[in-house]
Computed example of a mutant assay.
Amino acid sequence: MKKIKSRALRPGHTLGLAMPASPVKKEALDKAIAVIENLGFHTQLARRFEKNNPHFLAGDISSRVGELHQLFVDPEVDGILCLRGGYGTPGLLPHLDYSLIAKHPKLLIGYSDITALHIALQQNSKMITLHGPMAATDLLEAPPFTVEHFLQSLRAESWPQRLVNPEHYPMKTLVHGMATGILTGGNLSVLVGLMGTPFEIDTRGKVLFLEDVGEEPYRVDRALTQLALAGKLDEAAGFILGTCKDCTSTAYPQGENVLAVCERILAPYGKPTIYNVQAGHGDFQLTLPLGAGTRVDATNKHIDILESVVI
């Protein structure tokens, strides 16, 4: 499969700001624009901002799809940075023109609900995308580690590279061994929501990354069990477990925590597995190139991106 790679992004380039899921408030948008411009980028919106949007979606499907199409084809826009996640991205997937997007490749950056876009663009447009911090949420108060790795990830000279957690947050081994494959995955709940659709994740021979937020351990169990029953865990080459923020149990405080659930369900597959990787809904965030060739050396706790992510 020939991958489509996008142009590297550097200060002076223009980032199109997208809202494929939930809306942002005007105050957050203004702050996001200021932060991005302080990093040296220009910003651009593709549609009129709804100042007092009372809904849980940032517009109807046609306006959100049109926004993405316009940002991809606009020659003045160099990359696309999502303002936030929330809810609503999966509803766009049947309406996107994947051939059009593939003809105008640009880095798309985001995570959480944006996982749906990552999977669809990887599998339908053969693109590499970035699982990384978003403009109106994470980047507003991101620690230097998150910002620096985000900027490094946009630049061609940062790849290939070894992913390294911030100091005092060591990666840990759940299952020893080494595996190589295309990096895929994202938010566990979103991935499970795509099962049984034309956009369900393809894990065959791939390194599967998983993270989540605000889920009880029993819900993580349910989601992993669904992936297991669908054969997605057996087909994967290895696993990377990111952060699971606010996933301690209130319903069963004396029961298993999320790590114990992951160990019970994933370890029997015997596939190389690293956990405590600082990517996802945590205070620190690595930016991950979904769609890129990746090697997981769980024994030595190393994750290596094996190819250039951008051109």
Rank of each mutant, 00 (worst) to 15 (best):
G186V: 08
G186R: 08
N187W: 09
N187L: 05
N187D: 14
N187M: 14
L188A: 01
L188Y: 05
L188E: 01
L188C: 05
S189R: 13
S189Y: 15
S189D: 12
V190M: 04
V190P: 09
V190S: 04
V190I: 07
L191E: 02
V192L: 05
V192H: 02
V192E: 07
V192A: 03
V192Y: 00
V192P: 04
G193M: 09
G193F: 11
G193K: 08
G193N: 07
G193A: 04
G193P: 04
G193Y: 09
L194T: 05
L194Y: 05
L194S: 01
L194R: 01
L194C: 06
M195D: 11
M195I: 11
G196F: 05
T197E: 02
T197W: 02
T197V: 06
T197R: 00
T197A: 04
T197S: 07
T197M: 00
T197I: 01
P198Y: 00
F199W: 08
F199I: 09
E200A: 12
E200W: 08
E200D: 14
E200N: 12
E200K: 05
E200G: 10
I201F: 04
I201L: 10
I201D: 08
D202I: 15
D202K: 14
D202Q: 15
D202W: 11
T203K: 06
T203H: 04
T203V: 03
T203D: 00
T203L: 00
R204V: 14
R204I: 14
R204Y: 11
R204D: 14
R204P: 13
G205I: 07
G205F: 13
G205W: 11
G205H: 07
K206Y: 14
K206P: 13
V207A: 08
V207T: 01
V207F: 02
V207C: 03
V207E: 00
L208W: 10
L208M: 06
L208E: 02
L208P: 08
F209R: 07
F209W: 07
F209M: 06
F209A: 05
F209L: 06
F209C: 01
F209G: 04
L210A: 00
L210P: 02
L210W: 02
L210F: 03
L210Q: 03
L210I: 05
L210S: 00
E211P: 14
E211T: 12
E211L: 13
E211Y: 15
E211F: 15
D212Y: 07
D212H: 07
D212C: 04
D212E: 07
D212I: 06
D212V: 00
D212N: 01
V213S: 04
V213E: 05
V213K: 01
V213I: 06
V213H: 03
G214Q: 11
G214P: 05
G214V: 10
G214H: 12
E215V: 13
E215R: 13
E215C: 09
E216W: 04
P217M: 03
P217H: 05
P217L: 02
Y218M: 12
Y218W: 12
Y218N: 10
R219I: 12
R219E: 11
R219H: 15
R219M: 15
V220L: 04
V220Q: 07
V220P: 00
D221Q: 14
D221Y: 10
D221I: 06
D221A: 10
D221T: 11
D221N: 15
D221K: 12
R222Y: 11
R222T: 13
R222S: 10
R222N: 06
A223M: 14
A223C: 15
A223L: 12
A223Y: 10
A223G: 13
A223D: 13
